[in-house]
Design a protein around this nucleic acid. Sequence first.
DNA 1: AGCACGCCGACT
DNA 2: GTCGGCGTGCTC
Length: 616
Amino acid sequence: MKIASVVFNSSLPQLDKVFDYLIPDSLANRIVIGVQVAVPFGTSKNLKTGIVIAIANISAHTGILSEIAEVVSALPVLTMEQYALCKEVAIRQLGQVGELLGTAVPKRSIRAEANFLKSLKNDPPKTSAATAPKKIGAIRTFFSPGLLDEDSQSHWTTYIIEKAKHQLQNNRGVLVVLPDFRELAAFEEALQLAGLESFSCRQSSEDTLQIRWTNHLRSVNDSGLIVYGTRSASFAACNDLSSIFILDDGDESHHEQGSPYWNSRDVLLQRSHLEQCSIEFIAHSPSSEVSRLCELGYLDQITTTAHKPLVRISIDTERIDTETYALIAKTLGDDKPVLIQIANLGYATALACLSCKEIRRCDTCHSSLWLDPSRTARCRGCKKTAENICSCGGSSMRPTSLGSNALAEQLTRSFPKAHIIHSSGAERITGIERKGTLVIATPGAEPSVAGGFNLVVLADSLAMLGVPRLRGLEQACQKWSNAIAKTSFDGLVVIVGITGVLAEQLRNLDFSAVVRDDMLERCELGLPPATRMLSISASNAIDHKRISEAIKTEIAELESIPTAVPNTIVYGYPIGAGNTVASKLKILVNSVSKSSKNKLPGQRVLFLNMDDHKAI
DNA sequence: AGCACGCCGACT
DNA sequence: GTCGGCGTGCTC
């Protein structure tokens, strides 16, 4: 009898390995690699479902083998490329293969599967292997689309679709990973326009169970598809993969919040290595990681020559100066749309001292102060109510920028006849009609309008930089550039409150230069992206002490970084040492967890994040 | 996760 | 003497 190796979808470290089973003759012709099977497991009366990842004549296991009880899914539900990716990511992120299998394989829908099988009989999938040409040279680029989304030639969807068409002709697969449902909608619209709907396959957790399972079966069992979705699509099946595209890799939505804390960029970089395929990063402004890869020569940067909107820098410390007011009034008067980007909601984004003009910061944690909705001066970080005296001795302060509510009130007064719309994360408007509308939006919530906005005002630029965060500048660039991309062909951009070198770089809309300078400076200081931060949180003080001491003696090269978070240790490590550090840590973490005398039943002792963005 | 094995306290 | 507590460890 043949032997099948089976893996389980479980986050338990004890089950994070393959289990071999005998294939009974009755099931022999139905068991292929990738199918779901039900097997007896341990002493449990219930069968456990797993996935066959290998079939062989011998087993490395010396004990007696059980037999597979039944075949659950007639079709394969996992490709071996997906499985290899899960293994690689699990090693690098110090997690379990089993917990990533859940991302690679969605929940099964019996009805959807029955319908899919029926449709297969009428329309069998194209077989690709015989005709697929061998690998073309893998391309690795960072592409920055033109800063005018209205110019369809330089739009990111056009760029991806043109390249994808070429691959589809060879019956090869293309994977597209997008940050958000808004980009998903934009991409779907473009697919429809290009007549590629029948060659595309969406992977979205927003879809119903049935649709998800149908699309998943299709991407595993068919080829020559454009597979697209948000971050979990990084693990989606895509046969004969030739190119990977990832949009706005710096966007926070590309980070998985749960263990093992992977992000689309890193997963897809690993995937492009494993599958020897091209990878292209697309963003109006690069992330610092992409900027670093360009600097190293790992990625080629493609700059578009498409024309850019005109930029006016207003150095006025007021949020909106008189000239900008006049521009808004004129644009609205011409019945054309205006977009104002503000940092966030609330009544003030920052407070400045009237005598020294500095932004007031919290005495304990140094975060900026703001006026909360009850109009009390409060720290943004620790929420402590602030003193009324500045370090310079000045006793009065004023808001440097007003939040959306206050600004809206102010604008309503200034433009009594204007039609004002708000759009924020909570109440998001996706599109508006083209006329003299004034849109006040928070970053990422800007609606689109046919033809673009004739005036885009980045009203809170200074406040967006005022936050003392590591990635403040690169994230601001991402948010600014995405808002600027909504400008019309003949439109104007006003950036309020920026001065110096940054103002010059922004006048030319040279976001790559801004991010590059910031990135190089951070690398010199031993900060991300060249150095990475890993954090280990313990559920109690004793185990916290045990793991930190074990690391101090066993992995001396790890550089400890102070943190205020209780029972947590943070270390910096060079990005290239990731796998080495992870494998050394795995041994220590396992032994400390195992011998813990303090764990509650079912509770994990240690939580490990190999790439903790919030650690610093 | 389940489930059995195993070695100490209170019960007919 | 035995019933049962859940700590420890294994599951192909």
